[in-house]
């Protein structure tokens, strides 16, 4: 067993797990943060995306021990009971998600992207989310939601593409 001390969603935690435990497994099974989803466990789907010191990582691909002393943010740490995070609000407003399984990962990847505080184009948003698979939505409304959230949070504008047919 290894003892790991880290900060999860702003709270200090110490967890004792076998050394081969992934961060995802520890979050879900030891700390009960089941918001991050286990889709593939090998880094293909992005459903497990969390922020470690502000960077988006696939929690299934790093060991819990690698998060020692770091700050981890999961979807549970994003909103309070009273208030959605602006990304969640934007996703809700455009009906971005369907089954929602990809949602926590998508939203955390979006947060990491927007937090970088760069000027973004729609293509760059698509690029940044290409590691997060979604089987239901065709990504269209998800990208719409990310654009809205980006505009809301940063005050910048991404020009809308004009529909070709009326």
């Amino acid at each position: 067993m290894t003892d790991i001390a880290l900060i999860v969603n702003g709270e200090n935690k110490t967890v004792s797990v076998p050394p081969e435990t992934t961060l995802l497994k520890m979050l879900r099974e030891n700390l009960n943060y089941t918001g991050s989803k286990l889709g593939c466990d090998v880094g293909d789907c992005g459903a497990c995306t969390v922020l470690v010191d502000g960077l988006a990582v696939n929690a299934c691909l790093i060991l819990a021990a690698q998060a020692e002393g770091k700050e981890v943010l999961t979807i549970e740490g994003l909103s309070t009971l009273e208030k959605y995070h602006p990304i969640q609000k934007a996703f809700e407003d455009v009906a971005a998600l369907q089954c929602g399984f990809c949602g926590p990962g998508m939203i955390m990847a979006t947060k990491a992207l927007i937090d970088q505080d760069q000027d973004l184009t729609k293509q760059e948003i698509k690029d940044a989310l290409s590691g997060n698979l979604c089987r239901c939505t065709g990504y269209t409304k998800i990208i719409e939601g990310v654009v809205d959230a980006y505009q809301e949070i940063t005050g910048k504008k991404i020009p809308a593409t004009k529909p070709r047919v009326a």
Binding site: G39, K126, Y139
Partner: peptide, 15 residues
């Protein structure tokens, strides 16, 4: 698995 069963990502989607 999703490594070699290739499904569309956000980059494969057109307008």
């Amino acid at each position: 698995n999703l490594t070699n069963y290739i499904m569309p990502t956000s980059l494969d989607m057109p307008e």
